[in-house]
Simulated scan of single mutants.
Amino acid sequence: MNILILGATGQVGFELLRALSPLGSLIAPTRAQLDLSSPDAVAGVLRAARPALIVNAAAWTAVDAAEAQREAAFRLNAELPAQLACFAAIAGIPVIHYSSDYVYPGDGDAPWREDSPTGPLSVYGQSKLAGDEAVMASGAEHLIFRTSWVYSARGSNFMKTMLRLGQERDSLKVVNDQIGAPTPARLIAEVTALAVYRQRLGRGIEGLYHLAPHGETSWHGFACEIFRRAAESGMALKLTPAQVAAIPGSDYPTPAQRPGNSRLCVDKLEADLGIDLPHWEPQLVLTLGECFA
């Protein structure tokens, strides 16, 4: 079957190319080949690809820039998913879409569940929520994975930034009052592939699910673990965890407000898909290993 993957050059998209390759013929236009900001261009690719499954890993991920570029963020995060889901509904095919912990208000300390009330704090969060709602309202068979703190061995992300700064600086300040679970793009793709395989066996899942590793940490805790594990792997760093100062988010103002609580309950996904999601720390070790291979 033809599987159309949008956003294949991003972190999650790259991992999807590897994970989904045994399950069908992949059609993955690059940014140069497809202008996702153009509804007409997207429509043309949908007609030509004749997909049996759409996997949408394309997204506007520049959280702060979205505050000033609302229209562009909503095009990729809301209008594009709506267009894909509408096509899927008419064609009678499923669509898989990826969402974010930023759709929640970020207060309290209890993990968010799929039925928790939403309340995004930023334009980015608002655009992601609008995309989710459009997919759910489309009538298409759909699977939405809401995840948190995505990173990988390639592209731009928090882990890669920390590795660079760890080689350049002898001190660093990192926020310690925003809590979540760092999620490797590889894990997202692996779970997606399992869900697609189960779907082909007639035992698929449908609807909204949280997808993240077990455990929780702050950005400060994540940074310290990155430096500790990288040093153990032989990477030469100027920084040690002891040289990373913990600061409140109020000391590091950004254009977009970040949620303090990004914890996601994954009970529903584990039960319905029959899996045990791993803890975030071993997943970091695996991802770092890809950097040093």
Results as ranks from 00 to 15, higher is better:
236 A>H: 11
150 V>H: 01
169 R>F: 12
146 R>E: 08
173 K>L: 10
226 I>Q: 00
180 G>I: 08
155 G>P: 09
168 E>S: 13
194 L>P: 02
211 L>F: 06
154 R>H: 14
171 S>Y: 13
208 L>T: 01
198 R>D: 02
214 H>K: 13
168 E>V: 07
190 E>Q: 12
241 P>H: 08
215 G>C: 09
239 L>V: 07
194 L>M: 09
212 A>C: 13
215 G>N: 08
144 I>Q: 06
243 Q>L: 15
218 S>W: 09
166 G>I: 07
187 L>T: 00
178 Q>D: 03
224 C>N: 01
164 R>H: 14
191 V>A: 06
184 P>W: 03
210 H>D: 05
196 V>P: 01
147 T>R: 11
219 W>V: 07
170 D>I: 14
147 T>E: 12
241 P>D: 05
159 M>T: 04
214 H>Q: 09
170 D>H: 11
172 L>V: 08
155 G>W: 13
232 E>R: 13
170 D>C: 12
144 I>T: 10
192 T>P: 01
218 S>C: 11
218 S>G: 10
184 P>N: 05
243 Q>Y: 06
178 Q>L: 06
201 L>C: 06
195 A>Y: 03
243 Q>P: 09
242 A>C: 10
232 E>Q: 12
187 L>I: 01
153 A>N: 15
205 I>Q: 09
218 S>D: 09
179 I>G: 01
152 S>F: 01
219 W>M: 12
200 R>W: 00
202 G>T: 05
167 Q>R: 15
149 W>F: 14
213 P>T: 08
179 I>Q: 01
214 H>C: 12
201 L>S: 02
192 T>Q: 04
181 A>G: 05
171 S>D: 15
203 R>W: 11
205 I>F: 04
175 V>F: 09
218 S>V: 13
207 G>S: 08
221 G>I: 07
183 T>P: 08
235 M>A: 14
147 T>V: 11
186 R>E: 12
231 A>I: 09
144 I>C: 12
189 A>F: 05
235 M>T: 08
211 L>Y: 10
197 Y>R: 14
164 R>M: 14
239 L>I: 07
181 A>P: 04
211 L>P: 05
198 R>C: 07
144 I>M: 11
213 P>E: 10
234 G>P: 13
217 T>A: 04
153 A>S: 15
229 R>G: 00
242 A>W: 06
172 L>I: 08
172 L>T: 07
168 E>G: 10
240 T>A: 12
233 S>M: 15
169 R>W: 11
197 Y>V: 00
211 L>A: 10
237 L>P: 03
207 G>N: 04
154 R>T: 12
202 G>M: 01
189 A>Q: 00
233 S>D: 06
202 G>R: 00
224 C>T: 08
237 L>Y: 08
174 V>A: 06
146 R>S: 10
213 P>G: 07
225 E>K: 12
233 S>W: 05
191 V>R: 06
197 Y>E: 13
231 A>W: 08
205 I>H: 06
231 A>E: 09
206 E>L: 04
222 F>N: 03
223 A>G: 08
181 A>R: 07
199 Q>S: 13
190 E>G: 00
148 S>P: 11
236 A>S: 13
183 T>D: 04
182 P>W: 01
149 W>E: 03
182 P>E: 00
180 G>P: 02
200 R>T: 05
243 Q>R: 14
